[in-house]
C-alpha cells in the first residue's frame, strides 16, 4: 500500500477540526503522527504518515484542503550534503528512529528516508552542517 508523508498547517480558525478522525473513518487511512506542534490561539503543524489506497489518500487530502488546512507533501524532507559529510557518525545515536546508520562494510553514512520523521535532531548534532531539514 502506498505511503505518503505530509505536513498540515492549521490556522486558529480550523485548528479544532477533527482532521485525523475523518482521515481514518471516512477515507480508511492509516494515520501515523510523526510530529505535532500546537500553540494555544495560534494554530499549529502536524506531520503525518498516511498509508492507504492511492485514490483514498488523494481524496482525503482534498478534504483536508477544503476545510482550509494547508497541505504540503514531504518528498525530500532531510537534505544531506554528502560532499560536506565526513562519515563520523555523530548524528547516528541522536536519531530516534534509526534512520541514520553507517554502512557495515564501508563505514560511510546512509539515510533511510522511509524511517525519517523529520525531527531535526541530526541537524544540530552534525559538526559539519551537512544536514538540513526542509521545513
Amino acid at each position: 500500500m502506498p505511503k505518503k508523508k505530509v505536513i498540515f498547517t492549521f490556522t486558529p480558525q480550523n485548528v479544532e477540526k477533527p482532521v485525523t478522525y475523518q482521515l481514518i473513518k471516512k477515507y480508511d487511512l492509516w494515520v501515523n503522527i510523526l510530529q505535532a506542534k500546537f500553540e494555544p490561539g495560534k494554530g499549529g503543524k502536524l506531520v503525518l504518515e498516511l498509508k492507504g489506497e492511492e485514490e483514498q489518500i488523494k481524496e482525503g487530502l482534498n478534504f483536508v484542503r477544503q476545510i482550509g488546512v494547508e497541505v504540503e507533501l514531504l518528498e525530500q524532507e532531510v537534505l544531506w550534503e554528502e560532499k560536506k559529510c565526513v562519515d563520523c557518525g555523530a548524528c547516528i545515536s541522536i536519531c530516534p528512529t534509526g534512520a541514520l546508520f553507517l554502512d557495515k562494510l564501508t563505514y560511510q553514512l546512509n539515510i533511510d528516508y522511509e524511517k525519517c520523521i523529520v525531527c531535526g535532531n541530526c541537524v544540530e548534532a552534525c559538526p559539519l552542517q551537512a544536514i538540513k531539514v526542509t521545513f
Binding site: D87, C88, A90, S93, L102, Y107, P127
Partner: peptide, 23 residues
Amino acid sequence: EGKIKVQGKEVITSSLSSYAKAR
C-alpha cells in the same frame, strides 16, 4: 557495532571520529 550495555541498559553509540576517513 552500534550498541553497548551500560548498567543493564542498551545504549546506541555514535563515533565522532570518522572510521571511513581513517581508513
